[in-house]
Amino acid sequence: MFTRFTPEARRTTVRAGLLALDHGRATLDEDMFLLALAESWPVADFAVTPEAVGTEIGNREAATGRAGDRELLASIGVDLDEVRRRLPTRREDPLAWRLTRSRLRPLNVTLSGPAGDLLLTARARKVVEVALHTSGTGSKVTGEGLLKGLLADGSNASVAILRGLGVDIRGLAAGIGFLRESA
């Protein structure tokens, strides 16, 4: 699947996976795509910063009773920074990662690389599929395509986070050419 991604979109997807792993998750959710996009492709007109998105994600995790991985590991004496220092140096190399669809279960899409394997949740898979679809045949998926994938489902966590940050979702969608014209 990564053959249809620009280097920027591939880096963003890998970063989303690494963020999910750093948050102690076994799956890749769409909120990590939003955080990775905020880091790599800031939407300046809408004042979405990685810090603001990270804070919103942390607040949502706290509200659901999910502790961050750093806190959980520290409680048993594991230093997360030391673990990261010992990981392979290619951990963040986008070329060392693969995005594949299962042949036996076509709805299962997995991001695999040196830091581990992450199954994409249904909403994260939708982000990728919408990005692939909106890029068109023969075109590459871009960061903007991933953002379109996030905006495609108005009920996902990323849209709720953006709304919580005061972003005009309709204005954002119009700004990237993702609104259909009225009849």
Results as ranks from 00 to 15, higher is better:
3 T>C: 06
4 R>F: 06
4 R>G: 03
6 T>K: 05
7 P>W: 03
8 E>C: 01
14 V>L: 09
15 R>P: 01
16 A>W: 08
17 G>P: 05
20 A>M: 06
22 D>L: 07
31 D>K: 10
39 E>P: 07
39 E>K: 10
40 S>A: 15
41 W>A: 14
42 P>S: 12
46 F>S: 03
50 P>K: 08
56 E>C: 11
57 I>Q: 00
57 I>P: 01
62 A>T: 12
62 A>S: 15
67 A>W: 00
68 G>E: 04
71 E>N: 10
72 L>P: 00
76 I>E: 08
82 E>F: 13
85 R>G: 07
90 R>G: 15
90 R>E: 15
93 D>F: 11
93 D>Q: 10
94 P>D: 09
101 R>E: 14
104 L>F: 05
111 L>Y: 08
113 G>Q: 08
121 T>F: 09
127 V>D: 04
128 V>L: 13
128 V>T: 08
129 E>F: 11
131 A>W: 09
134 T>S: 13
134 T>M: 02
135 S>M: 00
137 T>P: 08
138 G>S: 00
142 T>G: 04
144 E>Y: 01
144 E>C: 06
146 L>A: 15
148 K>Y: 00
149 G>L: 04
149 G>D: 07
154 G>N: 11
155 S>Q: 13
164 G>H: 05
164 G>S: 09
166 G>Y: 12
166 G>K: 05
166 G>T: 04
170 R>V: 08
171 G>S: 07
171 G>E: 08
177 G>K: 01
178 F>V: 02
181 E>C: 01
